[in-house]
Design a binder for these strands. Structure first.
Lengths: 250, 250
DNA sequence: ACAGCGCTTTGATTCACATCAAGAAAACGA
DNA sequence: TCGTTTTCTTGATGTGAATCAAAGCGCTGT
């Protein structure tokens, strides 16, 4: 349950140059020289074990992380122990922008699975943003994506009924998979029911019932974490609340 | 219901130099010379009439706005006409960061009252961020604040019961007023019940009942939009879910 | 392979909140 | 100013989802 001392984990040799995710990540649009600068500033391939934390709320060290493999959740928790999961981060996603206002992370980030990340310290990040306009642009796009994602979740939590929320989530996840070159119709959920229910603002039992209901209606089939979408159009119809083509939004 | 053609509104002569809100706004931390650059890039004191829009979703013009007087709400709406209010912006607040990802605003922004704003086009904003490191820093703090605010709202919508939500909101608003040099114990709500209920994810009737309940419990007194906080400690206690000292967070 | 534990599903009951309905109070407009 | 409209409050009723309870299932590790 402690934050992993990142410096103790080993740096692998996988560079942005070869990284299949670079188009989704900070390197996008950077020239070869700029990319070299970036590579020199990051910890490549930091390993995080399942259930370990990338960072804690109020940690004085803060950084931007890019997920290479695995999955991460961020959450906010209250004095009385309740938590709200704010987002799930999959390969290609960036997290850590929450520390911008106070130079401290405002939420916790925990690995849902054994996970690989690249770490860019805030100092280095700031410096690069000053030097590289392309990097600044890409950074701003990423921040915009984060804001959009949160806005979408607000709409979900504030306006939708539980079945719609699940449909919206599955539809988004499917879209994400498609964009990443994976199957849009069959995939594994990276998180447990408990976490998904919390994220969607409902009880675990309710989530389970909604999965069952969608299955009864022959819209999806579920077993454990494997989801197959049987009727995409009806799923999207249920999730009709979604505004944008749902790209970039989990 | 149309977006106001901003260029048609007159530029007043109130400069950042004299602006009482400059410490909350982009100028914070800028030198005199830097401030001059900023001033030359912005439309000072654009007037927006009540119910007019600062921007619409998908507008191809996009900009950052600083509220000088009045109040603005941002909202996301669904094809079937439902909306979710995402935030209220009061004097000293900045809005418009949602356009970062796609060069289009992703939500609507509407004046709740006759409102004065400063407008900084995205182009000028980008340019200034490149030139002025202090401005970049301030921008990032503002973005961080926006992200924190949204995260707090997610916690509110996802985990709290209706009474807690209202208590949290009133407590935040009180704090904001205090920070701005106004009374923390007595203030006017800048929005109608309808909008507040939507923002807090509940029915108008429920919101009204919660106001009544807090009044019966002698925690606050309300008449129309005027709120007086009679027992701050009990209010904060009800809002105990709130984590941070609630600064910067509406 | 088996025991034990956590995760998930299903069922029964309760409750918080939405919805429906109507009246009171402000705000608005002529 | 008055009449109309909108906004807000309060009450009665219904319902979606939470909670309580318990059984099934899949992992874990030894």
């Amino acid at each position: 349950m402690k934050t992993v001392p990142l410096h103790s984990t080993k740096k692998a040799a996988i560079a942005c140059h070869n990284c299949s995710l670079s188009e989704l990540c900070l390197p996008r649009g950077l020239t070869r020289e700029e990319l070299d600068l970036l590579e020199n500033s990051i910890n490549k391939t930091v390993k995080i074990k399942k259930k370990d934390y990338l960072f804690h709320r109020d940690d004085n060290q803060h950084a931007i992380f890019a997920v290479k493999a695995g999955a991460v959740k961020t959450s906010l928790s209250t004095p009385d122990g309740e938590e709200q999961i704010l987002g799930f981060y999959l390969p290609g996603d960036l997290l850590g922008f929450d520390a911008f206002a106070h130079d401290r992370h405002t939420c916790d980030a925990q690995a849902l699975d054994d996970t690989l990340v690249c770490e860019l310290s805030m100092e280095n990040f700031q410096e690069l943003c000053g030097k590289l306009p392309a990097m600044r642009g890409q950074m701003m796009r990423q921040i915009g994506t984060e804001i959009e994602r949160e806005q979408m979740l607000l709409l979900t939590l504030g306006q939708m009924r539980t079945e719609e929320r699940l449909a919206t989530f599955l539809s988004s996840l499917s879209e994400r998979n498609r964009e990443r070159g994976f199957s849009a119709n069959e995939f594994n959920l990276p998180m447990a029911r408990h976490d998904l229910a919390n994220y969607l603002g409902m009880a675990v039992e309710t989530l389970s019932r909604m999965f069952s209901r969608l299955q009864e209606e022959n819209i999806i089939s579920v077993q454990h974490r494997l989801v197959k979408i049987a009727d995409m159009s009806r799923l999207k119809q249920l999730a009709h609340h979604t505004c944008r083509p749902a790209s970039d939004v989990l």
